[in-house]
Design a protein around this nucleic acid. Structure first.
Lengths: 132, 132
DNA sequence: TGATCATCTGAGCAGGTGTTCATATAGATA
DNA sequence: TATCTATATGAACACCTGCTCAGATGATCA
């Protein structure tokens, strides 16, 4: 296990004294943190970055506010991009697991998933905090 | 208030019959949804898109897992990018309101904010759902 | 004071992203 | 079948983003 000099100095600073064993122990503690990070963060990253776009965020918020499914033609007057862009956005949101789709004739109804609901709720619960 | 033909047809489909007043009413309902979308989504978008990057997501997960503040030199061995990239990432996270910084001599300790905690919790609570 | 250290910042570049336009698909209707 | 209509898809383009490298900053210590 490599022992970066910098970490050695940090441990020395914090403990007053420091031997190699202390640094090794600290490194092991740190590496156990890495084990807590999900093995496959891809779906989390997709959810976050997909929702982190203006158009897609607005679509999801509208669906959450509706507390019901909405059709593309109902969303269209509420966002300022082409229908094509809306379709792309809803498709991306579906792939990211943030909305689900139901077909009814030629209409397509979209509804937010629990994941979308919870992310929006997390944001609402912490909006405007000065810090922490 | 413009009345898109498409919306008229949707309402007609759903209600069986439909007059202009029905379409106007539906449009008003839809526009009231828009009022529920936060006026200034910028901070939400910043939080989501900032966290939706591999490096920054990993840093935040490590900080959340630590349940304590960590120093740059402790994070460094746990991510595969240069110290400069880590510094950029932590700076972006700070700007996005996802971590806070404390100075101690030349060391900088970082800690996740409640917003970061809640977003991570929302993801953890909904990981692996097949749908909705 | 000058050297060293931890961290930050800015420039520059490769690769990724969101939009529109044109077109495809597929259900409904005549 | 021919033709709408609602939505989806692909290409192309302008714009944005994350990385590394080089150098700056500011604290600590000889």
């Amino acid at each position: 296990m490599a022992q970066p000099d910098r970490l050695h100095r940090l441990v020395a600073d914090e403990l007053g004294e420091c031997c190699d064993a202390d640094v090794t122990a600290r490194l092991e503690t740190l590496e156990s943190l890495a084990a807590d990070v999900p093995d496959d963060p891809a779906s989390d990253l997709a959810a976050l970055s997909t929702l982190g776009d203006d158009t897609r965020y607005r679509l999801v918020r509208l669906l959450v506010a509706a507390a019901d499914e909405l059709c593309v033609c109902e969303l269209s007057p509420l966002v300022d991009v082409s229908d094509s862009a809306i379709s792309h956005a809803l498709s991306d949101l579906t792939d990211a697991g943030l909305v689900t789709r139901r077909k009814e004739g030629t209409w397509r109804y979209y509804r937010p998933t629990e994941r979308a609901d919870r992310l929006v709720a997390a944001l609402d619960a912490t909006r405007g905090n000065i810090d922490d």
